[in-house]
Design a protein around this nucleic acid. Structure first.
Lengths: 195, 195
DNA sequence: TTCTAATGTAATGAA
DNA sequence: TTCATTACATTAGT
């Protein structure tokens, strides 16, 4: 496929575009599968998060805004779903959509959109940073703010990154505990069956 | 495949365990260690990832471990065969193996190897499964747990496989967005050069 | 080779 | 804070 090979050749450039908000293709809704029954089950979440998240790492975009070649392209979302509450003119279309899409679904579309726009670029820790963090974790898996700050200074990272790292690390430890416990229980169970 | 069905059997139990709170790690509440002292013991003595990966489909080993026919062969990684795709130097030896082993044999050998190395055997979705998943994806690319479970039931797949499929499918969609956007930007750029 | 299933983990938001 | 879920980067099977 032509576009594919072009893409492969342009990978590194494409990487640079990663932070640029993508646009969303119009999705055709025809479906031979009887999904209605499945979609009917999805009545879980409600409420729209009204608070704008804090995204300091996106400031760069607003700073270099005057160079047309560096500007983030303004994306037109042809799909009416994506105007959910930003464009009053499209509101009618959105209402029509309710026939076809549940609140949850439209919410998830919106969530997708916001993710396209505003997720923090994934931090890639260096081997040394990981090593230090792991060593600290062995001794104290709940470092207080002072130690986090100190680690941040020494490792040249945001304190926020440190905090998130410890959160994820604790989750990982806990997961592994749960799993070994699960295996233990299961093995006990099965071996008791063999008696 | 045997391992697949076994895994499916374990899924629901694993799901239930997911919500059970694991046991609490011992928290060293106050830390008398300075970072220096912690950093000081940075003599990479361990290097061993203490956390076990999550491999429910490998439970068969622990359960059926006493059946010699089902036991995992203890593989010595010194065997050049086991470096087949990771070590290009050994590639030649592998090619020589063609005289002695049929394609099928080497295939199952490879499968066994990857299984032993701890990676889940790659799931081959049927055409029908893909079709249904694609149809659902068109309407909702973020199916909640209920829909995933229902899909899993209807398609006779693990719920985990469904989730992973949607993750990968979203990544694919996003990638294609990035690529077409890149092309757009590039075209804009080059045509602006022609002015 | 390309495509994509699987993995590990950083990031996010709800509870 | 935990927890579930997500995106993202990467590995590896077909």
């Amino acid at each position: 496929m032509a576009s594919t090979s072009l893409c492969a050749a342009n990978t590194s450039a494409s990487q640079n575009l990663r932070k640029v908000s993508g646009f969303v293709e119009s999705k055709t809704t025809q479906c031979s599968f009887s999904i209605e029954s499945i979609l009917g089950l999805e009545q879980k979440k409600d409420g729209i998060p009204a608070v704008k998240p804090h995204r300091p790492w996106m400031d760069a975009c607003t700073n270099l805004g005057n160079n047309p070649h560096l500007q983030i392209p303004v994306v037109s979302y042809e799909n009416p779903l994506f105007h959910a509450n930003s464009n009053p003119v499209q509101e009618e279309k959105v209402l029509k959509c309710e026939k076809y899409f549940s609140v949850t679904e439209r919410l998830s579309f919106k969530r997708e959109l916001s993710w396209y726009r505003g997720r923090r670029p994934r931090t890639a820790f260096t081997r040394n940073q990981i090593e230090v963090l792991e060593n600290v974790f062995k001794i104290n898996s709940y470092p207080g703010i002072d130690m986090r700050e100190e680690l941040a200074r020494k490792l040249d990272l945001d304190e926020d990154r440190i905090q998130i790292w410890f959160q994820n690390r604790r989750a990982k430890l806990k997961r592994s505990h749960r799993e070994s416990q699960f295996l233990m229980v299961k093995n006990t169970f099965t071996s008791s069956l063999l008696d």
